[in-house]
Write a protein that binds this DNA or RNA. Structure first.
Length: 116
DNA sequence: CAGGTGACCACTT
DNA sequence: TAAGTGGCCACCT
């Protein structure tokens, strides 16, 4: 039977996996919470991905490359400023649509097994 | 102790 | 076609 320690370990591991995927996002590209969650096998737990990024605060993780399904910068406010995330993405050569959303069609990147 | 919220997405009607 | 609802699970009040 699973011990609480293991459950806690899995949670921590979940965050670590999210960070690992985010760290693999190519420069100038973005991904969505759902794709990360699906890659981790938690398609329905996309919300937890957001918490993982929240825990990534202060870490060398490009959480600014993670946007919602519509390319909107959902976590811009939690990033330390509403414009920080957008500015960072613009620095990455990322283009925005007239709606203020990232041009997913051109910058959407999906986590794959990465046939290195 | 229990309820509500949240950096969301997918499916159903 | 669009709009609505459920679900997931951890953290906060």
């Amino acid at each position: 039977m699973p011990s609480e320690d293991e459950a806690t370990k899995e949670r921590d591991d979940f965050y670590t996996r999210v960070w690992a995927v985010v760290a693999r996002i190519p420069l100038g590209n973005v991904t969505t919470y759902g794709h990360i969650a699906a890659y981790l096998g938690a398609r329905r737990s996309a919300r937890m991905v957001g918490w993982a990024l929240n825990a990534a605060s202060g870490m060398p993780i490009p959480c600014h490359r993670v946007v919602n399904r519509y390319g909107g910068l959902s976590g811009s406010h939690h990033f330390g400023g509403p414009f920080i995330m957008e500015d960072l993405l613009r620095s990455e050569e990322v283009e925005f649509d007239d709606d203020g959303c990232v041009r997913m069609k051109s910058h959407l990147w999906i986590p794959e097994e990465e046939t290195d």
